[in-house]
């Protein structure tokens, strides 16, 4: 386990570094001068030169990269070109929206998908097996923002049960209001995400249900439910955990789009605004935090998978 941990940590650090390089290079190589964001249209050459010096974009690329890397390592993500506020602070201010949204949506999606997926596999011969399949098939084809739009229309605009969007300005000062604001976005993401999860859970369960060891357990007198809970669940969990880690990352990104449906002040809104205003430090900061999150979640998922199924530790060497 320790050997695997070391190797996997090295890969994580390597990917984080490569992701940082890729992020930096892509944003610098692409056309568009960050200095333009600071200046009015038709600025003189001297003004552009001064703005570049102020931003540090006149230095050689390598020294720019090293400066940036040093800043990032000391948790300094620079300042927004528009608001001049520190990017790190703004991200920290938006996490209380995005993190609860992502985690709640993820938990709800798992709570929906695991029982439904197992049921679809165990009762494939009943009428609801195919119905669950069809609904899941529909679910993966529906864009999350449209689900959000439909839910807002029904539950906020027509029935007036929940707010249509926005978040209390004092954040979690009034927890009830904050929770109310997050219910529809959470349900939106969870519904879309559970559709693809159901398919994985169903496939993993079907594999296990047809496995020899389950037939043996049944032959030794275990009831179908007991046999599945004692022997099947852990085996079915292995492929599902790998998918879960990926899905958690997807939820986080799904939040980017869904936040804009509900005008939530989260990371997604920050990124979209940063892109439309060509605010490079903001784009870089949010992208870096998002990518790091995705990579760390993948790392944790791989570890969790090996805790559930230690056999993988020995297979990984190949």
């Amino acid at each position: 386990m320790i050997r695997y941990l070391l190797r996997r940590t090295a890969i994580l650090l390597g990917s984080l570094f490569l992701a940082a390089v890729a992020l930096f290079v892509l944003l610098r190589l692409l056309p568009g001068d960050p200095a333009n964001a600071l200046l009015p249209v038709g600025a003189t050459a001297e003004q552009i030169e001064a703005a570049r010096r102020e931003l540090g974009t006149d230095a050689p690329l390598l020294s720019q990269f090293l400066t940036w890397l040093h800043d990032v390592a000391t948790l300094d993500l620079g300042h927004s070109l528009i608001s001049t506020l520190p990017v790190g602070d703004e991200i920290a201010g938006r996490l209380p929206v995005t993190v609860p949204l992502t985690l709640a949506a993820f938990v709800l999606a798992v709570l929906i998908a695991v029982p439904v997926g197992v049921l679809a596999a165990a009762r494939a011969d009943r009428w609801y097996g195919p119905v669950i399949n069809a609904v899941a098939q529909l679910g993966i084809a529906v864009p999350a923002f449209w689900v959000g739009l439909l839910l807002v229309t029904v539950f906020a605009l027509n029935l007036r049960l929940l707010p249509a969007g926005g978040f209390p300005t004092d954040g979690w000062g009034d927890p009830a209001a904050a929770v109310e604001a997050l219910i529809l976005p959470v349900v939106t993401i969870a519904l879309v995400m559970s559709a693809s999860l159901i398919r994985y859970v169903r496939a993993a369960t079907l594999d296990v249900l047809n496995a020899d060891f389950l037939r043996t357990a049944r032959a030794l007198g275990a009831g179908p439910v007991e046999a599945f809970l004692r022997h099947g669940l852990r085996n079915a969990a292995v492929p599902v955990i790998a998918v879960l880690a990926m899905e958690l990352a997807t939820t986080f990104l799904g939040a980017v789009v869904v936040e804009s449906v509900f005008t939530l002040p989260g990371l997604g809104g920050m990124l979209t605004k940063g892109i439309s205003q060509h605010d490079y430090p903001v784009i870089q900061g949010v992208m870096l935090v998002s990518t790091a999150t995705v990579l760390v979640v993948g790392f944790l998922g791989d570890l969790a998978q090996r805790l559930v199924d230690p056999r993988l530790l020995h297979r990984a060497a190949s």
């Binding site: 990917s15 992701a19 892509l26 190589l29 692409l30 980017v256 789009v257 990518t291 995705v294």
Partner: peptide, 24 residues
Amino acid sequence: AVVLDILIAFPTLLLAMLIVAGAG
């Protein structure tokens, strides 16, 4: 293989937004 794994860890939408950020 390592580079591909990293690229795949970069989700489609994020990569697309990054490119749109630079290229318009």
